[in-house]
Amino acid sequence: MNRKKKMNNILKKKVKKSNAKLHTSNKPKYVSKAERARLAAEEENLQASE
């Protein structure tokens, strides 16, 4: 019984991982506060130079 259970668990894990890869999130990638500030400063410099 233990061998069957172990094999089933291994196979279930494999299926679960493959399904997780298929369903990607639509959430936007996280951008840190410092990175947002840096991007805003760069954009400000671009607009000022025009």
Score class of each variant (00 low, 15 high):
S18I: 04
K33H: 11
E35P: 03
S25V: 02
K17L: 15
N45A: 12
H23D: 06
L46S: 04
N45T: 04
E43S: 07
P28F: 11
P28E: 01
K12A: 10
N8I: 10
K16T: 03
L46E: 03
S18G: 06
Q47A: 12
N26A: 12
A34C: 02
K12E: 08
S18M: 10
A37D: 13
A40I: 02
K16V: 04
E43T: 09
K21E: 07
E43K: 13
K33P: 04
L11K: 06
L11E: 05
L46T: 01
K13M: 12
A41C: 04
K29N: 06
S49P: 00
H23T: 08
K16P: 04
K27R: 14
S49D: 07
E42S: 10
A40E: 06
A34K: 06
S25Q: 06
N45V: 10
V31Y: 02
V15P: 00
L22M: 08
N45R: 15
E35F: 11
I10H: 07
P28A: 08
K29W: 11
V31F: 13
N45F: 14
K21I: 02
I10A: 11
T24R: 12
E35N: 11
V15K: 12
S18Y: 05
A37E: 09
K21F: 04
T24G: 09
S25H: 05
A41V: 04
S18K: 10
E42T: 05
A20W: 02
R38F: 15
Y30T: 01
L22K: 07
A41F: 13
P28W: 08
R38L: 15
R36S: 05
K13I: 01
N45W: 15
H23A: 12
S49R: 14
K16Y: 15
N9C: 12
S49F: 08
K14A: 11
S49T: 03
N26Q: 10
N26I: 01
E43Y: 14
Q47I: 09
A34P: 02
K33C: 06
L46D: 00
N19R: 08
T24L: 13
K12H: 09
K27V: 04
K29Y: 12
P28K: 02
N9G: 10
N9L: 14
N19W: 09
H23Y: 03
R38D: 12
I10W: 10
N45D: 05
K16D: 13
E35L: 13
V15E: 06
A37T: 00
K29C: 10
S32W: 09
A20T: 00
V15I: 07
E44L: 15
K12L: 13
E42C: 10
S25I: 01
N19V: 09
Y30K: 03
N26G: 08
T24M: 13
K14M: 08
V31L: 09
K16W: 15
A20E: 05
Y30L: 06
S25G: 05
K14L: 08
Y30M: 06
L39W: 12
K27S: 06
V15H: 03
L39G: 01
Q47Y: 11
P28Y: 00
T24V: 15
K21Y: 06
Y30Q: 00
K29T: 04
N26M: 14
P28Q: 01
R38E: 14
V15R: 09
A41P: 00
K16H: 13
A34Y: 02
I10E: 05
S25D: 03
E44D: 03
N19I: 09
N9K: 15
K21S: 10
A48V: 00
Q47S: 04
K29S: 10
L39D: 03
